[in-house]
Nucleic acid binder design. Structure first.
Lengths: 192, 192
DNA sequence: TTGATTGTCTAGCGATGCTAGGATCGAATC
DNA sequence: GATTCGATCCTAGCATCGCTAGACAATCAA
């Protein structure tokens, strides 16, 4: 069985290589540049090899998205745990979220802009996505205020952050004044 | 000169036809289905004709976006003028905005998700885009609160609406509870 | 050693956005 | 009224896209 195990390991390793290469290429030149041919060339295999790991380009995007969701959850929790008051926690979370989106635009796109074939907001949602939302909920649930459902509050706050992130990156909002916009959101939405 | 004038008229008419057809096709089957071949077939001209009106597909998207911006400004102003108090105005504006996004998803995409080659947030921004933002500013500036710049407040409120609109439509947020989310945003962000 | 299975590659399909070059048509000139 | 000439439009084609069929080679079991 050792031979099979080795092959399985190598296969898993190659799959990681595909995802990492796709992500790297997307961050460098955008998702449009991530073609199956270019990707195959970079991993030094032929195109059809990609299709023995993933159903298609969409699934590769989905894999990058899941990887990114896990990292985002870590980043958000780290920021939250470094703050003392609930309000400070929310402010730190918001900055961490926007920072993640700005530093990993391709990953953020894979998560929330592109079609990665992932299920959202239902029971089929992959664990990393649920957990990323949970990471937001942990800090945001504290400041929902009386009579407001924590999940609903988290969704709304998240949507606001998402709007800021996407409009800024798409050039729809001037890139200055990010901090005062965040401050405004936190000051008004969070109830200590 | 009458002949030239007629030709010019016909040309302008055909350009309108292209934009209207692209929009219609996009709303029916999504922007992916708007290929230059299909578009050409629908307007009953050959493909290269499109390129005598627009530099490429991107500019066609941009044209649809400008048309949509004008309509959105009208919708937002109409909703705002039907309300009496500043807070009610903002609530009506928010609902009108989300309603427009939900009813015209392809147009909304052309405006804020896709690359239509338009300039945003600078002096080269086309007039319809500036005016759509102005329509938001007219009502939202009233409730920015003391010491908060109306433009900055409008940008932030708009981003929140944009986040709700896109996440909902992309299936990232459950489609129920739209109204309580809007209420939460208006109640917390707007200061009467 | 043979036969079968697994893995990989070459080649190709139907699309895509976009463009070059030739055909056609109508207006203006003689 | 015939002829030039420029504008207008179409056919055909390019490079590239995601994806797949079928041939080939390497590896394993018998």
């Amino acid at each position: 069985m050792s031979v099979q195990e080795r092959k399985q390991r190598e296969r898993a390793e190659r799959e990681r290589l595909i995802v990492a290469t796709a992500r790297e290429l997307a961050e460098q030149q955008g998702w449009d540049a991530v073609t199956t041919r270019r990707l195959a060339e970079r991993i030094e295999y032929s195109q059809p090899v990609l299709y023995s790991h993933f159903r298609g380009k969409r699934e590769i995007i989905g894999a990058v998205a899941l990887e990114g969701a896990a990292e985002m959850a870590v980043a958000v929790r780290a920021a939250a745990s470094s703050a003392n008051s609930p309000r400070e926690r929310v402010a730190a979370l918001a900055r961490a979220y926007l920072d993640f989106a700005a530093r990993n635009p391709a990953v953020y796109d894979a998560l929330f802009q592109l079609d990665g074939g992932l299920a959202f907001a239902n029971e089929d949602t992959p664990e990393p996505l649920k957990d990323a939302f949970a990471a937001l909920l942990e800090s945001l649930g504290e400041v929902a205020g009386d009579g407001v459902h924590p999940g609903l509050f988290t969704e709304t706050f998240w949507a606001s952050l998402h709007g800021l992130a996407t409009l800024t990156r798409a050039g729809r909002l001037p890139p200055e004044y990010i901090e005062p916009r965040v401050k405004l959101l936190v000051d008004r939405l969070a109830i200590v």
